[in-house]
Design a protein around this nucleic acid. Structure first.
Lengths: 219, 219
DNA sequence: AATCTAAGCGGACCTTGGTCCGGTTGTTCG
DNA sequence: CGAACAACCGGACCAAGGTCCGCTTAGATT
């Protein structure tokens, strides 16, 4: 440790935008984190979060984050693998919120409503979520194959496929789920709203149209 | 010009895989190319093509291409903008072949057949085309937003949207076209066939299913 | 408390995409 | 043909992601 150490207590809370507590790392995945490692992890996430809200994703270099956290560069890469990993980790908290909403939140997005209704509710929520974090999401997309293998996409896919199956969508709900998710891809939505002149309302209407076609008389 | 100049005649023909003549640059887009610039351009494409078939996309560094072409690095960037640009230029020839097939080739892919039939024919052709060049296509995807703004995607989108409109697909054929193209995205197809255990036949069947849903009774 | 070990650390180092600018060379026009 | 100009060339240079390895230290064991 070289840089000026921050006070040992409450090392968290992001800069301005939206304070998120990074002190509690995910106890799953990684078996356990040594005390200093956990501390550095949250320092790094704090620093990254701050740099992000202050200067945007393009200025978020690994050196800058390491330096701002008072940590060596190697530490950043060891903890997060690569730049995308750091960005994704930054997104993780929001991602869990969204997951909680459609897995266990109030109906019709959460359980309790008919599958078709949940499906209709899912699109707008997803579009909203991705749009809220499009900067981070787009910045983390260096490898076009990676998203499909990552937990967020897999979970959404499983969820949508289950609802489609439950709603009786036809022979291959898994593929239809990919199609539905593709239709709300962050990059596409961003393109359509920024360069294509579409509004969110139109995109939502299109989602509903798609869901209708996929759950209507076509089984 | 520093490196050992290749014989002045017939500077083209790729290494092994599939010889493509790069001597004729696109007379559109760029107003005109000075003689030496055109020569260097085709040398670079030749060198890149050779490196590609010999060692795969990941070994295709800009330095290596410049060196192999006997040209300075700056020349590569001036001509192609960035790495993706070079990769896309490498793909351009094949892209034009594919475009010719669905714009002016034999029916049912080309004109002459009913819109629905052309739509059904388009999917398999597209999947085949993208799969054939998935290495290049995936390697060129660094910026997730770029594909939507690039000519190949725009042309496909216009084409599919037109066919959908012609087939009477409903209120927003443009969006349905995006959905259809998203369902055959190179990365998705690659993911499904490599990690998802799908076969091309299944993907084609799914395409036909989607087209049916989009052109069936839903206007 | 002393010891031992594996996890962690940091920053020098490498690679590679991308920029810049002084010198060179086609091309055109008188 | 010769001058003038714009396009072009090349490689030194920079930034940023990613790797490596010798040193440090948390935390378990006795």
């Amino acid at each position: 440790m070289t840089g000026p150490a921050t006070p040992p207590s409450t090392p968290s809370s992001a800069a301005s935008g939206t304070p998120v507590d990074f002190t509690s790392g995910p106890p799953d995945g990684a078996p356990q984190l040594r005390a200093d490692a956990a501390r550095n992890r949250s320092r790094l996430l704090d620093a990254a979060s701050q740099l992000l809200t202050e200067q945007g994703p393009e200025r978020l270099t690994m050196d800058a984050v390491a330096c701002a956290a008072g940590v060596g560069k190697g530490t950043v890469f060891r903890r997060f693998g690569d730049r995308s990993g750091l960005l994704l980790a930054l997104l993780d908290h929001r991602e869990h919120e969204f997951q909680g909403a459609f897995l266990g939140g109030p109906a019709p997005l959460g359980p309790g409503a008919p599958a078709v209704d949940r499906l209709h509710a899912f699109g707008p929520a997803l579009i909203r979520h991705e749009s809220d974090h499009h900067e981070l999401i787009l910045a983390s997309r260096k490898d076009p194959l990676r998203p499909y293998a990552a937990p967020p996409y897999r979970l959404r896919h499983t969820h949508v496929a289950m609802l489609l199956r439950e709603a009786g969508s036809g022979p291959d709900p898994e593929y239809l789920a990919h199609t539905l998710l593709g239709a709300t891809d962050t990059a596409l939505v961003h393109h359509l709203t920024k360069a294509g002149g579409r509004t969110f309302e139109q995109l939502e209407a299109n989602w509903h149209d798609l869901v209708s076609r996929f759950t209507g008389p076509g089984a």
